[in-house]
């Protein structure tokens, strides 16, 4: 069984973002990056599925700049078997359809049994790559998958989708299929020293891209700090203890809950 896991490099959660000079994206050059959170869970679930099955191959794939190799190397160290890097230095200028089309063209011939992605990226947050990709590959998809019945693998797969407000639903899919994985599906493993050493021998295949124009693309015209909808009273002036004292006073006199 072959599982392809799509992973993306995004700005670190705690990075202080600066808006780029053309105001159409952030300044990526000077910030720390990380693997998109839900993509990490997608990899973990793929590894667990392979382990449960006792055979198979986990191939990780990213579309992004040279720096995104870090994401692939980390995935190989955690146990992925090989990697495909679709190199593109301007990934953040691509629309969801362009991203999905580029990935579809790069992985189609792999004929994977399963394709996993995280449910959305933590930067552009389109949340569409997986769904469009499934349509382009002509395979069924399920989004926001929170559990997989690993015993069910026999040409089909039983999986649990998260609905809203605490509701869930099981589906059975024919394979091949594409799943977008929700964060928290299982505990993510760390890369072992042995894994890190082994990763050095694993293949990372570079694919050069030819991005097709897409007539119906959405374009980011401008990025900016969200307009404040509320007047916030900042308390304590950077001193948390002082702020706490002031807050209790406010809860007493202005909010009147004490």
């Amino acid at each position: 069984m072959k599982i392809i896991v799509l992973m993306k490099q995004v700005a670190n959660k705690d990075a202080v973002l600066r808006i780029g000079r053309d105001e159409k994206w952030i300044e990526e050059s000077d910030i720390a990056h990380q693997t998109n959170e839900s993509d990490g869970y997608a990899l973990e679930e793929a590894l667990r599925l392979k382990e449960a099955k006792g055979e198979g191959e986990v191939v990780v794939c990213t579309l992004g700049a040279q720096s995104a190799k870090t994401v692939l190397k980390d995935a190989l160290a955690r146990g992925a078997d090989r990697a495909i890097h679709i190199v593109n230095e301007n990934e953040n200028r691509l629309s969801p359809f362009q991203i999905a089309k580029t990935i579809a063209d790069a992985i189609r011939d792999e004929n994977a049994d399963l394709v996993f992605t995280g449910l959305q990226s933590d930067d552009a947050s389109y949340g569409q790559t997986g769904v469009i990709l499934a349509e382009l590959l002509n395979i069924p998809h399920a989004t926001i998958v929170i559990d997989i019945d690993r015993e069910s693998l026999n040409g089909n797969l039983r999986l649990k989708r998260e609905l809203e407000s605490g509701w869930y639903q099981w589906f059975t899919y024919n394979l091949p299929a594409l799943l977008t994985i929700q964060s928290g599906i299982s505990q993510i493993r760390y890369a072992s020293l042995k894994g890190i050493m082994a990763a050095k021998k694993k293949e990372i295949r570079e694919v050069s891209t030819n991005i097709e124009n897409f007539a119906s693309a959405q374009h980011i015209e401008k990025v900016y700090l969200p307009l404040k909808t509320k007047q916030t009273q900042m308390l304590g002036d950077g001193d948390a203890k002082k702020g706490a004292v002031e807050l209790v006073e406010k809860l007493k006199t202005e909010v009147r809950v004490l």
Partner: peptide, 9 residues
């Protein structure tokens, strides 16, 4: 952005 009272700390 949506807070009425904020403490940075």
């Amino acid at each position: 952005d949506i807070a009425d009272y904020g403490i940075v700390g």
